[in-house]
Write a protein that binds this DNA or RNA. Structure first.
Lengths: 240, 240
DNA sequence: TGAATAGTGTCTATAAGACAATATCCC
DNA sequence: GGGATATTGTCTTATAGACACTATTCA
């Protein structure tokens, strides 16, 4: 088949050649107990029945890519407002056996307490633990395991998409406005460090971490302290 | 119009709803005399006749996104092999007056000596100087000026796409395998520093730069030296 | 010889890691 | 009081910036 013409020499028609289908897939990430978790849906139909898929949907002709991602996010996870970032677009010719499907992928960061109760297990939803690779930014496929610890088989190239989401989160780990999306409004420096360690897949020096965070000027001490802990309570901080 | 269904609950038909058109646009970047330059084509027809556009084309039904980008790159700039990286996908509903067109954008890095003579001025091609914003990674629109110094009006959202390309190059500036795509096979540390300064939009400390580059282990001294310079010749290095 | 740049050595300032000492909570 | 963690301060080490000095080329 001849390739379609370039976009500068022809004005129209836009529809003289077959077009790929266009979808969005959203990696909904949250942090629980020192592990990243991702929202997945077990497929009931072929292809890939039984495998676990990222929430996704087709892009409507009258909605932007971001709008499509937010629509999917609300329909599948009940999330109206959250941090959302485009990741990468996957377009291998045979990535989907149903036909030529190009997917624009997104990462959504949701604090655990806002996601709790929004995912419906009766619709096949699971919150799967992400097996974060050690250190290096990697970029390849990333595995997910069920709450029971069983590795999940992911739909199509969704393990690679998950890998992109983790890699991007690592790049953004020092941007407070991003990582704070995975915490409550106020948090201790210890909680912030635990989140950094979860994302980066390595342990960090406590003294250096505290100094670096406070020197960054991205956080503001609230003057109040955590409560009901069995040790000296730490001061609570928030995004400046 | 109702949105199309999600991708997990329906198996088919994929083609029951109108689909956006899908294109690729490629930001071909090169470095000349301390400035980044981008390959642009002046449009001869509406919409946007007279404005300057990135080389682009529709994605064929039987080629991947990367393949489409490489096809455009060879057809428009005669470049067969070069560094190519996906940037971002732009999908605002009204970004193109011809209809709903979603574009997957790429950045290509080509050394000046390989691009020289490949762009045909009779086809409207120009190698425009990129006005690199100072320091901060920015991300917004970036301007391009003609060889005569005249600011060019860019087609559609192509100034934003160019901004993405510059921002991404800044992120990759410390990856030798990337920046070396803009140099000859062997180069002096002074040339490497000039390239870093061009990309980052700021001047760098010479001593610290040398130490940091040599300590990174990404470069190998060749033992030979530059020739025909009016001062002490510097040693030539290459990517390890 | 003079101009210009390459390359080396040294000093200082800043940031990170290690570790000790004290403070504050619950039991 | 004992256990655990927060917070502060100090010391050491690694890296970056500043600057002086020597080396090498061409005019």
């Amino acid at each position: 088949m001849n390739p379609p013409p370039d976009t500068t020499s022809a004005s129209l028609p836009l529809d003289a050649w077959p077009r790929p289908s266009l979808t969005v897939d959203v990696v909904v990430l949250t942090a629980i107990d020192g592990s990243l978790h991702v929202a997945l849906y077990q497929r009931e139909i072929e292809p890939g029945a039984g495998t676990f898929a990222l929430p996704g949907g087709f892009v409507g002709i009258d909605e932007s890519l971001d709008e499509a991602a937010r629509r999917v996010l609300e329909a599948k996870a009940g999330i109206r407002r959250c941090y959302l970032e485009q990741l990468h677009t996957f377009g291998a010719v045979r990535r989907d056996p149903r036909g030529r499907v190009v997917t624009v992928t997104y990462s959504a960061l949701v604090p655990h307490h806002e996601l709790f109760g929004q995912l419906d297990p009766h619709k096949g939803a699971v919150l799967a633990r992400v097996v974060v690779p050690l250190k290096g930014t990697s970029g390849g496929a990333v595995r997910a395991v069920s709450p029971a610890g069983i590795p999940l088989l992911l739909f199509l190239d969704h393990a690679h998409i998950l890998g992109y989401a983790v890699a991007r989160l690592r790049v953004r780990v020092d941007e407070a406005r991003v990582v704070c999306q995975l915490l409550r409004r106020t948090f201790t420096l210890r909680e912030l460090q635990a989140l950094h360690e979860t994302i980066r897949g390595e342990s960090l020096n406590k003294d250096s971490f505290r100094r670096r965070m406070l020197a960054s000027g991205q956080f503001r001490a609230t003057g109040s302290y955590e409560m009901a802990v069995a040790f000296r309570p730490a001061e609570l901080y928030m995004l400046r």
